[in-house]
Amino acid sequence: MIRTCSAIVLKAVPFAEGGAVVSFLSEHGERLSGLAKGVKKPTAKWVAAFEPLGMVRVSFFGKEQTELKRVTRCELAFSPLTLGHLEASLVMACLADLFDRVAREGVEDDRLYRLLSACGRALKADPDNALGILAYAEHWLLHCLGLLPHPRVCGRCGNESAPLALLSPDHGWCCTACTPVDPVEALPPGAREYLRRLRTGGAETAPRLDPADEAQAVLTALLRARLLQELGGSLRSYEVLWRTL
């Protein structure tokens, strides 16, 4: 049985005899994996097709009940790789790790494919905003997982204008009008506006990293910690990112 689909490359793990087990995010948002034989050999015709976040047309061969099918064809259609741009390359590895953990085999969610493809194209167009695009992706992954309430109204009192105070596990975003909180621990001014920019803009307009923007820094750290906690802890790609930048 042969299955062909458009997909995004996530990870390639070395396998015996110069091969690799490659995971993909299909156009329907399902995680797929297959064995690509000889991919690590210098003469392999499809080495470049397995770079993280590359958009490909891939074919699998194997019986329906076979756990690991064989990759018989993989044609690269688009690559977000920008040669010599370390920050963008590190962020690509983080995104590949995140989506490899979030996507599930046998479970389709095309929002994941749309989000990752948008982030890949945004990275190609503006690699200098790699960290902003990563924060954008983390925000929307939490939304896809059903873990991020809408920030328009306070989840406790319904206020739409008071500054946000905190993110509560029970009520979602809570405002200062109804939530007593130590000013030192409260979310910085501008938190609601930053969340609005993440929700209403696309990956190509993701807010740029601004060291002077306290609300951006605090919320990025908060949402990242929540996402990594849900995925079982820190990812190696993030550890490399933190050590390098």
Rank of each mutant, 00 (worst) to 15 (best):
E67A: 15
V91E: 00
T66W: 02
M92V: 05
A96C: 12
L112I: 10
G84L: 04
V107C: 13
K63W: 01
A103N: 06
R73Y: 09
D97E: 13
G120N: 01
R101C: 13
C119I: 09
G106Y: 03
G106L: 11
D126T: 11
R121I: 07
L116M: 15
L76H: 07
D126N: 14
K63A: 07
D100P: 14
H85R: 12
D100T: 06
F99E: 00
A122C: 12
D128T: 02
L81I: 13
L81E: 11
L76E: 07
D109M: 02
G106Q: 01
R114H: 09
C94E: 09
Y113K: 11
L98V: 11
S89K: 00
A88H: 03
E87R: 03
L86R: 13
C74S: 14
A93Q: 11
D109Y: 04
C94H: 00
L112P: 00
D100I: 08
R70Y: 08
C119H: 08
P80D: 08
A77Q: 11
F61I: 05
G84Q: 10
H85S: 05
E87T: 04
G84D: 02
R111L: 14
L83F: 15
V71R: 05
E75W: 10
L90R: 00
S89V: 06
P80W: 08
F61A: 14
L95N: 05
P80A: 06
K124Q: 08
L123E: 03
L115K: 11
L83Q: 05
P80Y: 09
A96E: 08
E105D: 07
D128L: 02
N129Q: 12
Y113C: 04
E67W: 03
A88Y: 11
G84E: 01
S79V: 10
E75R: 11
Y113V: 12
V71Y: 07
R121N: 00
L112K: 07
L86F: 15
A118P: 01
D110P: 10
R104H: 06
E67N: 10
Q65N: 12
A118H: 03
E67K: 08
A122I: 04
R114D: 08
D110R: 14
G84W: 04
V107L: 04
T66Q: 15
R101H: 14
P127V: 12
R70L: 15
S117Y: 11
R73I: 08
D97A: 06
